[in-house]
Amino acid sequence: MKILICISNVPDTTTKIKLTGDNKAVDLANVQWIINPWDELALTRALELKENTANAIDKVTVITVGNAGAEPTIRKALAIGADNAIRVNTDPKDAWLVATQIANAVKSENFDIILCGIESSDYNGSAMGGMLSEMLDLPSVSSVSKIEIEGAKVKVNREIAGGFETVEPSLPFVAIVQKGIAKEPRIPSMRGIMMARQKPLTVLEPVAADALTGFVNYEPPMPKAACKMVDADNVAQLVDLLHHEAKII
């Protein structure tokens, strides 16, 4: 069995977001780049599945769409434990473009399981995994919080309102994963970092494709009014404020 994990290169989630002077872009100078948190959990889970020898997983591959600047992030995925990596050398302008590039890069690779994070922590698009599965004409299950392999079968838990469903897809398929898929992301070991330098990283040139969406302008969030403080010895006043002033309870 072969597993592919799609990786998005995103600013660290603690980044304070600044806009450029003309509000036409997010100022990404001096930003620390990381593996998108959900993609990192997906990679961790794929490695856990591979380490269970009963699962007979030959290869865990990671792919990203990005310029050379994304290389440290995909190298980190190798250091965490992926066997090989692919980078499609283009600017990931929108989900459509990224999905088109990944679909083209992997269409003849016969991956059995493709894992994508449910969104990227930068533009929160929630689109790439679903688009990729449609472009590859594969079944997909989204909001996946658990994935298990039982022989030739794969079982996933899909979150629904108030609980979850167990879903069995036919293979190959795309799982779009969320929190819970793995407990905590793995941190690369020193040995992992050394080994990553030797692992294959294939750079592919993009196919011709256009983005269908584009960011035209940004605005900072509206400033919030100062917090109204209530004395800890007078908690009833809080309820009074919520009832009479905010009219919310």
């Binding site: 304070k16 997010v26 922590s121 930068d122 269908l212 969030p221």
Partner: peptide, 19 residues
């Protein structure tokens, strides 16, 4: 052109759909 939150509410973006 529609507006959406990006970076989980740390900014708003105007997005144009060209299709």
């Amino acid at each position: 052109v529609v507006v959406k939150k990006v970076f989980h509410g740390k900014a708003f973006a105007d997005v144009m759909i060209k299709s």
